[in-house]
Nucleic acid binder design. Structure first.
Lengths: 339, 339
DNA sequence: TTGATATCCGAAAACGTTTTCGATAATTTT
DNA sequence: AAAATTATCGAAAACGTTTTCGGATATCAA
């Protein structure tokens, strides 16, 4: 039971490999009759082109790489679904890699993708990525690159993001509009752009509405997860801060905080309002349901691949490509954790 | 700026392609001196072998495929981490695909992996997979296959699982030992083997301890998620069943049930004990913390790839391989949701 | 010196496809 | 009928690597 190749088909039909190849690809210089013959024989033998040979010959793998900090996160898994769906429709396979929020690993993953000769790379940066030489390396290899969500402004490539600053502004404004006077912020790590932007949006909203910014009301949630939210909330309680609203950088952190409040008999939203960010699928399931900012992961995923595709096509056609940045809309989702 | 190839190096050094290739792979029939020269030149030019050519020549891709029902689930993401880590250490890239619990998509993904000529496939079955012809097809293509967690007994390949029946038995017994007399079960879909096994373990535990099995206490959670848990719990309350313990097939379902109880003023574990399954990372975070069964996802992942590797090596060496089944240990994690 | 034995190197085939370009046969035009 | 055009096919090169096998040179024993 040997591998079935073009050669095999050609021999069976007594014609040349060339003709078989062209027949299967509907070249105009092969007759209807032989086309039919070839296709029939191919079907009969269950012919599948050897992708290794095709890759070598065409110099493309019909494969793209995707690097995310963590696969588990609901937001990223939405993005993944969007990317994969769009990619599949265009005949591309996507290789999903994790950086585990580590610059070192991220670098390694990029190198891996380069060595596997993917046709393009999509990436959302790790928290501690400041050096972007690995991305430049990819671009030097002439591999189209697009960044999404957690981007670096220093890299000249296509990007797709939300307006984190504006979204955070809106989230904070929602708290203010509902009557909060002393609003704390659970912020993310120092480096990531969106962590910075959300902080700035929070600050700006306070200032625009006559509330003065108090740096002692900003708590650090390094990993922006449930535990971080708990810790920050406990610290806030210990500090005995007079706070009637919290804008957390993440739904997970917000939920962590809310469970701590519950344990301490602090009522949400009566005693304190809580605002999350992302619209995690469980945030509408918990009690009280969490108010949050909707972050369109699926759409971002689709958009990411579409941008990449545009660039891949331009590259193949040999025409220059100008990187573009797309900004997606977010909106406030009012639920029970805010008044 | 041309691609750097063996030919390039050979020309620069005035030697043959053959020698360059052999030097880089430390063949014994090339002198120390030329080896050094070649390696130096290769490093200088940043030579990276063209993986397309290597694939074609060696007939292997150093790539394996992985199909899971859903990437987001914590359990599967643990498995993924285990697999990826082990694979990476052995120089393999893993292509992660989702079946979305759909047989049709699963089939398509398997075909995709075959057409991409992966060196091996790891799979956890979708809920509605009963026909296994796509897996046989993979095996006919001589692609090593191993199944994990959600397996089919009909396929003759290596498997790595937990003893779902025993684990469910232990979970139920834990409820019984803590004094529960009327224990309900939130079961999964009808087809999956582990859904069946967990149900059987539950039933057996009841019978072994003098509690009679009551089929009206078994509620269906088709998708075994949070919402299913809520629905089942609400139905249970509406049915006014006298129940003092629940064994849910999944932590998510258990958490869903617990929130419903909380909303109805039913105390856990005072009024009703709740037992989950999987040891989801949030199950220790919620209040009350959920008692559950620890399901070793990471270890399962590592074991899965190790089994696959064994078979891939055997295949390469041309020696026959006898499929093996490995059963991983689970244990009860007692927290606050049971007495 | 001769023959034997290591030691080192390279020619060439092979992997399976795609694509260029020229050749032949069939058809049309003049 | 000759010339021009069209339709159909195939030879061959190319992609970049790996590996077999034989050839050349150097080293050694006789």
């Amino acid at each position: 039971m040997k591998e079935v190749t073009l050669k095999q088909i050609a021999e069976n039909l007594g014609i040349s490999i060339t003709t078989v190849s062209k027949a299967l690809k509907n070249y105009s210089d092969v007759s209807k009759k032989t086309k039919a013959l070839v296709k029939e024989e191919a079907k009969k033998l269950h012919y599948k082109p050897n992708v290794f040979a095709v890759n070598l010959r065409t110099k493309e793998s019909k494969t793209v790489g995707l690097i995310v900090p963590e696969i588990v996160h609901h937001f990223f898994s939405s993005v993944i679904n969007g990317i994969v769906e769009e990619a599949e429709r265009k005949g591309y396979l996507v290789i999903i890699l994790q950086s585990n929020e580590s610059y070192k690993l991220e670098r390694k993953q990029v190198d891996l993708l380069i060595s596997k000769r993917v046709d393009g790379i999509m990436i959302s940066l790790a928290n501690d990525t400041v050096d972007t030489s690995h991305l430049l390396e990819a671009m030097e290899h002439d591999i189209p690159l697009v960044m999404f969500d957690k981007i670096s402004k220093l890299v000249k490539c296509s990007k797709i993001i939300i307006n984190d600053r504006q979204a955070a502004y809106n989230a904070t404004k929602h708290l203010i509009d509902s009557g909060c006077k002393n609003i704390a912020h659970f912020r993310g790590a120092l480096l990531p752009q969106n962590s910075i932007d959300r902080f700035l949006g929070y600050k700006k909203a306070l200032e625009d509405h006559g509330l003065k910014y108090d740096s002692s009301l900003v708590y650090m949630c390094e990993r922006v997860d449930y535990e971080d939210g708990r810790r920050a909330a406990e610290q806030l309680i210990k500090d005995a801060k007079k706070v009637d609203g919290i804008f957390a950088i993440t739904d997970m952190a917000a939920v962590g905080a809310m469970t701590v409040f519950k344990e301490h008999g602090i009522k949400v939203p009566e005693d304190i309002s809580v605002m999350g960010f992302s619209n995690w699928f469980l945030s509408q399931a918990i009690t009280p349901a969490l108010s949050t900012i909707n972050q369109p992961g699926y759409e971002m995923g689709r958009g990411t691949f579409k941008l990449l595709r545009k660039e891949m096509k331009a590259k193949k056609a040999g025409i220059p490509f100008e990187p573009q940045t797309k900004v997606l809309e977010t909106f406030v989702v009012k639920r029970e954790s805010t008044k």
